[in-house]
Amino acid sequence: MKIATLLVSSLIVGLLTTAATPQDERSRAEAAFAAARAVSPTPLRLDQDRRSWLQERAFEGAVVAEVDDLQAEHWIASAARDARTRALAVRTTSLPDACVDIGLSNCSTATGGYLNIDGRRLSWQLQNGVTPEDGTAAGYVLLTGDDRLRAEVWGHAGIRYEPPTVMRVEGQTYVAIPGRIAGTGAYNADALFRVTPGADPLLTEIDNETWRDADLPALLPTGLEIWKGVAFNYDDESLTARTSLWTSRDGNCCPSGGQATLVFEIRGGRLVLTELLKDATP
């Protein structure tokens, strides 16, 4: 990973030059994406960003060169930030008072601690701060090591995070960090990682977003929808979530379609929605 970080740093320098044509802008954005993905602890989330970028540039009336330029700048900044975080050596004694540098400015650490996973210690820290893209934000970071710690995974996609929790599903260990995105939708910013003892990396991201598009439409009762984030239960081996259900006549505030339990499985690297169990009474 040190070699990858050096290569990304060199590539970032080249990407900072201004592109001359719309095609150059797209190539620059694609190269910036590849650089960001190479050092990101959450590459699947970046894949979602890329899909959103391609959809945005396909909109009628979109100024494609501007869309590509803005996205390239975002990924260039992301690559530089994550490469810097990967290179950190963090002292254990600094965790209670000082933020690990994951890209939040005006940062304060809300809380922290450690998890014992199969005899291995995994330290964690939650943060509050500011990002240029989103303004007020929250963040998390999980670290391995004894005195000198190395950041394993981190992120700041949400406005609020809760302490990480360990769960075991079908004999496999996972770490989940519940989170919420800003806005009335209170959409999920949860992060989910598989733990593989003895491997490098120790933590591998699980795709916990695409179930909404890939699995949910076929399971929703006719006339009902899910408009907001769901409440995952990470406390036992039955991975479920609770949600309200909306009809087309409802306001955003006031769902009238009752409640439901969502049942998930983890298949490969993806969270798969297998059942939607609507409560018997609204």
Rank of each mutant, 00 (worst) to 15 (best):
C107W: 02
V67S: 09
D101W: 10
L142K: 06
T109F: 03
L88F: 01
W75N: 03
A98Y: 11
D68S: 13
R120T: 15
T131M: 06
S123A: 14
P41W: 05
Y114L: 08
E66I: 12
S40R: 15
L115A: 08
V67N: 02
L126G: 04
E73A: 15
D118N: 09
E60C: 03
V130R: 01
A58M: 09
R84F: 02
R57H: 10
A137T: 06
Q125F: 06
G145A: 04
G139M: 02
L104T: 03
V90C: 09
S94I: 11
A72G: 13
I102K: 06
Q48C: 04
C107S: 07
A83I: 05
R120I: 14
D68Y: 06
I117T: 09
L54S: 09
R45I: 07
V67W: 05
E56I: 05
N106E: 13
L122E: 15
L104A: 05
F59N: 14
D47E: 13
H74M: 05
P96D: 09
A98W: 09
G145D: 04
T92W: 00
R45A: 10
A58Y: 03
V67P: 01
G112Y: 09
V63H: 02
A65D: 05
D97A: 12
V63D: 07
G119M: 09
T109N: 10
D69M: 02
R50V: 06
I117R: 00
Y114Q: 10
R120D: 15
P43F: 15
E60V: 11
L88W: 01
L95M: 08
G112L: 07
N106S: 12
A77H: 01
P43V: 14
D101V: 11
A58H: 05
D101H: 14
V90I: 15
H74P: 00
E66K: 01
A65W: 07
L142Q: 07
E56N: 14
Y114N: 09
V130E: 13
R148E: 14
A87F: 01
D47H: 01
N128Q: 15
I117P: 00
A65G: 00
L143N: 05
V64M: 04
N116T: 15
E56V: 06
D68T: 08
A62D: 10
T92I: 11
T144N: 03
T131R: 05
A83D: 03
D101T: 13
A89S: 10
F59L: 13
W53I: 12
I102A: 04
T111C: 07
G135Q: 06
D97Y: 09
R45K: 11
D101G: 08
A87M: 08
T92S: 11
D82G: 07
N116I: 14
A58W: 01
S52R: 12
V130A: 03
L54A: 14
Q71A: 15
L70A: 11
D146K: 05
Q127A: 11
G61C: 10
A58R: 08
S78H: 10
C99I: 08
A98F: 13
R50Y: 11
Y114P: 00
A80T: 01
S108M: 04
R81C: 02
D118L: 10
V67Y: 04
D147N: 10
D134I: 00
Q55F: 03
T85P: 13
A72K: 01
G61Y: 12
A138G: 14
A137K: 04
A65S: 13
T136S: 05
L46M: 07
R120M: 13
G129I: 06
T93H: 12
D69F: 00
W53V: 12
